[in-house]
Design a protein around this nucleic acid. Structure first.
Length: 920
RNA sequence: GCGGAUGUGGCGUAAUUGGUAGCCGCGCUAGACUUAGGAUCUAGUGUCGAGAGACGUGGGGGUUCGAGUCCCUUCAUCCGUACCA
């Protein structure tokens, strides 16, 4: 064997681990760089080739940054709490901690084989008490804080209490669900319980009855980002709306800062756009309509105050609290029936037929604030209780939903913005002239909005308002395998544990199921109470709790006294480069931005945003292979012959297919029923069909990195993962191509060795060609890494090695630099070559060679000569020849007559050192 | 519906600022060495055409001396989102 990757890779992995080569120091003269991967949930299935893609990219970047003189923090850990381990525990009784431990061990083994330069001394696990102590600690800080809109930041709740004592709440501007105003006297006369209930409306994490996504199958509530299309993201179980008392995070307090902060981030536009949509900022006005014969006003939020004269009816959500008050007696039965109906329609059904229009007239009327006209008030389930005020002023002429509703129920309406044809559809554009609208007639939409809002304010019926779609995040889960809340109850009022009692460790339970009375699993724990005997909270925290500030723990992972020390945080600041999947766009990436801003407000960390630059690696798709069974037989027909038969296709394990040719012997062994299968072959082969699908066990297209490492080595796997295509693009995995990269690695090795595989290097001075090959590579690799284009660097290395092989170059001064620049990509072989070259220590801390432009300069330029833009021939001319001489030279060129076709050129365009174009 | 992304050989892709379209691989074809090859090496490989050459970056149009790249328009695929007033 010429290049023994098995031995060499093992050797260097051991060296790195024994010497703690990649241990990062918190204090260093070097500039810092923090490269973070989204830490994995260690699932039982282990890693497939898609998982390490991002880790390889971040590892290349980390190693490159070290070569460039940076002190690099590149840690790894585990998002160890999660549903699969708990579901497994429910089925088997095995403690989720054991399952998790086992899965982590397997992940670690797989990761180690790929040769990552992680600083494992800083490993974190979210389920480790030393870690979740700080998750609980942050929760307590949230509990003890409120959001002061005047200073636009979080502030201690103790300070709020002082204000209440001295002046009540009338001067407080907070992000709050508190509506009632009270004086200092009121406050001081309230009971402890009353005071605590009021404070709950201010705390940044609060316990409240809210409409939640309840998933009966999982026995828990889920956050909005954990639900898609009415089913749970994990498991795909149905989810229903239900009102429950739950902990929530008042993330809405930060809506504007989360929105505005996106502008300064070096993230892709697409992910910023997803976050903007999720936050859903819309500007408009809050308008108060009087209700005929009722004291309470009907408040609506609208983004189109300019269309106020086009209001033809009002619509409220069926859940709106005023519905029962205003419904007339003769409409009562119908309205109640409608409310029950819409309640029973699950979210899923509602989504399935959006087109179904339904509603009911309440018999009540609102009064138009300007015209005084009476307007029918309807209830309709197209109005969402959770958005705005849960009621809308309907302007059918200029809103398509109102338009559909009005037409369905034959409610008349008027056009108030010109420019559309409202006999056909609603005209929604904010473009046109206002008509039929009294004092704003003739105005442009924009001006009309301003005028109307000013009028609202003047007459006290409305105000400017910015509304957000973002909801507070439900933070309770009725599950076992998660962080316990550091909360106990006294007289039914929640209080935080003293910080000295953290961590509050997850207790043992006899079963991982809810109690008979429907309480969460922690209610099964013995003595689940404080030492004073107060009961502890039985819910646990959700998956995103432990991942919201984990990057700070990496900075100072062993610190028992602080989340992160001031010094460590001052040095590492925040994450310079974050690589992970785009599926976290609305979950983790928003929550951790929120936690970070909160910690920043408290002065605990020095940066307001956690992740400066974010890259989303594309999904690696599976490449499925198919065999075709002839109907009613155990005969399989090869792909190109199947058209002559009636067949059914069947997924076949891609690991027994090579280059789409089925390994028939392996296939027969694959499943017992296939042992006596027969085959109809083409050219003596069975050719399989191919399709690109998701990589999944059930589709038999999962490729395991371990097998590839065994067969080709980690360096080959790393290079091939990068070679597949641009990091951010989704692309199918096709093991076939890996051979090419494997050949390249062997070819690289041979540059440094003679035919008998003896290390052989010459100390001769390199020639121009060799220097050019090297320096053009140095230049390209730097540029590629700077723009995260790792696939193109791999081809660049191939070109370089091909050229040096052709030049028969074995000169130290070339090959030593080559070993350095390739080391981020293929670290094992580089270490070996580096040490064979006689260097001490790891190549990981060598100096990246400097690019010298003069080596790329040429005496002659080979100009492509085009006629009307079509390249016809090449002309070699001295590089310093100036444009007029070039024009002359090209016209004197012997072959030119053939292309001129006897014409005189209209124009000759010369781009110096680039191209010549002759216009005929 | 809305938002985002992507369309280039048989396949994965390259062309960073408008300047030789198809780099680097896979696969395929032929050959060398070999008992053998899933080893190694050499040559070829966008399409049509015997050739000269013509045509070619999803389709149509435009700007330009010159367009894969810029503009308009249209189609297809994938992802996200869902009555957000």
């Amino acid at each position: 064997m010429e290049y023994n990757f098995i031995e060499i890779e093992k050797k260097w992995q051991k060296y790195w681990s024994d010497n703690k080569t990649f241990k990062a120091e918190n204090l260093s003269e070097k500039p810092k760089y923090f490269v973070l991967d989204m830490f994995p949930y260690p699932s039982g299935a282990g890693l497939h080739v898609g998982h390490p893609l991002g880790y390889i990219a971040s590892d290349i970047y980390s190693r490159y940054k070290r070569l460039k003189g940076f002190n690099v923090l590149h840690p790894m850990g585990y998002d160890a709490y999660g549903l699969p381990a708990e579901q497994y525990a429910i089925q088997t009784g095995q403690h989720p901690a054991i399952t998790t431990e086992k899965n982590i061990a397997r992940y670690r083994e797989q990761l180690d084989k790929i040769g990552f330069s992680f600083d494992w001394d800083r490993e974190v696990r979210t389920s480790d008490p030393n870690y979740y102590k700080w998750t609980q600690w942050v929760f307590i800080q949230l509990f003890n804080s409120w959001y002061d809109k005047k200073s636009d930041k979080a502030a201690p709740i103790s300070q709020l209490i002082e204000t209440f004592k001295s002046e009540g709440n009338s001067n407080i501007e907070a992000a709050t669900s508190q509506i009632d105003i009270f004086s200092a006297n009121d406050w001081n006369s309230f009971s402890e319980k009353e005071q605590q209930m009021i404070l709950m409306n201010y705390r940044l994490t609060y316990l409240a009855d809210s409409m939640v996504n309840w998933c009966p199958e999982l026995g828990t509530v889920l956050a909005n980002d954990e639900v898609t299309d009415g089913v749970s993201v994990r498991g795909g179980f149905p989810v229903e709306r239900k009102s429950m008392k739950q902990w929530s995070l008042r993330i809405t307090a930060y809506a504007e800062r989360l929105f505005a902060g996106l502008d300064g981030l070096d993230w892709t536009d697409s992910i910023k756009e997803i976050q903007r949509n999720w936050i859903g900022k819309s500007e408009g006005a809050l308008v108060s309509f009087k209700i005929k014969g009722n004291e309470n006003p009907l408040d609506v939020f609208t983004t189109r105050p300019d269309t106020i004269f086009g209001v033809s009816y009002m619509a409220m959500a069926p859940e709106h609290e005023l519905v029962s008050q205003i419904t007339s007696s003769e409409k009562k039965t119908a309205v109640e029936k409608y409310i029950i109906e819409s309640k029973n329609r699950s979210d899923r059904e509602r989504m399935a037929d959006v087109k179904r229009i339904s509603g009911e007239f309440t018999g009540a009327y609102a009064i138009h604030p300007f015209t005084g006209k009476e307007i029918e008030i309807w209830i309709a389930d197209y109005v969402l209780a959770g958005y705005g005020t849960g009621a809308v002023m309907a302007v059918p002429a200029h809103d398509s939903r109102d338009y559909a509703f009005a037409n369905h129920f034959k409610i008349p309406f008027v056009e108030v913005i010109s420019g559309g044809d409202i006999s056909v559809e609603a005209y929604e554009a904010k473009d046109g002239i206002v008509i039929n609208s009294d004092f704003i007639n003739g105005m442009k939409v924009k001006d009309a909005m301003k005028t109307i809002i000013n009028k609202f304010v003047e007459s006290g019926i409305g105000e400017r308002r910015i509304n957000y779609r973002l909801r507070d995040a439900i933070f309770s889960r009725q599950r076992y395998w998660g962080e316990p809340f550091p909360i106990y109850y006294k007289d039914g009022i929640p209080y935080p544990l003293p910080e000295s009692e953290l961590p509050l460790e997850l207790p043992e339970v006899d079963k991982y199921l809810p109690t008979e009375s429907g309480e969460p699993p922690l209610a099964r724990a013995k003595n689940w109470e404080t030492k004073e005997g107060y009961p502890l909270e039985c819910n646990t925290m959700p998956g995103f709790a432990g991942s919201s500030a984990y990057y700070y723990r990496y900075m100072d992972s062993k610190n028992p006294n602080e989340l992160v020390s001031k010094e460590a945080n001052q040095y590492w600041e925040n994450v310079d480069l974050y690589i992970g999947g785009a599926e976290h766009a609305t979950g983790h990436l928003i929550y951790s931005r929120f936690w970070n801003k909160f910690l920043f407000d408290l002065g605990l960390v020095c940066k307001e945003e956690p992740y400066k630059k974010l890259i989303n690696q594309g999904m690696i798709q599976g490449r499925s292979n198919f065999v075709y069974r002839v109907k009613d037989s155990n005969k399989f027909v090869s792909f190109n012959l199947k058209k002559d038969f009636e067949t059914t296709s069947m997924h076949v394990d891609v690991n027994i297919v090579d280059n789409d040719e089925l390994n028939i012997e392996e296939f027969k062994k694959w499943r017992p029923d296939l042992a006596d299968a027969e085959f109809i072959l083409e050219d003596g082969k069975y050719i399989c069909g191919v399709e690109v699908e998701k990589m999944s066990k059930s589709l038999h297209n999962v490729v395991n990195p371990d097998i590839l490492v065994e067969r080709y080595g980690a360096d080959t796997l790393r290079l091939y993962e990068m070679f597949l295509g641009p990091l951010e693009q989704a692309k199918p995995w096709d093991t076939n191509g890996i051979e090419g990269v494997f050949r390249f690695i062997k070819k690289l090795w041979r540059l440094y060795h003679d035919k008998e595989n003896n290390f052989l290097i010459s100390d001769e001075e390199p020639n121009r060609k060799e220097l050019k090959a090297l320096h053009k590579t140095i230049k390209k690799i730097q540029e590629d890494i700077d723009r995260f284009s790792f696939n193109t660097s791999v081809s660049t290395f191939m070109i370089c090695v091909n050229e040096l092989t052709d030049l028969k170059c074995n000169k130290r001064s070339i090959l030593q630099d080559l070993a350095i620049i390739i080391s981020p990509y293929a670290p094992h072989i580089s270490e070996e070559l580096w040490s064979l070259l006689g260097n001490k220590g790891s190549v990981g801390f060598a100096k990246f060679p400097e690019f010298i432009p003069s080596y790329l300069e040429e005496e002659n330029i080979s100009y492509p000569v085009s006629f009307n833009g079509k390249m016809r021939f090449k002309l070699e001319l001295p590089a310093e020849m100036q444009v007029p001489q070039i024009e002359k030279a090209v016209m004197e060129f012997e072959d030119i007559d053939k292309w001129l076709e006897g014409k005189q050129p209209k124009k000759i365009i010369v781009v110096h050192k680039k191209i010549i174009n002759i216009v005929l």
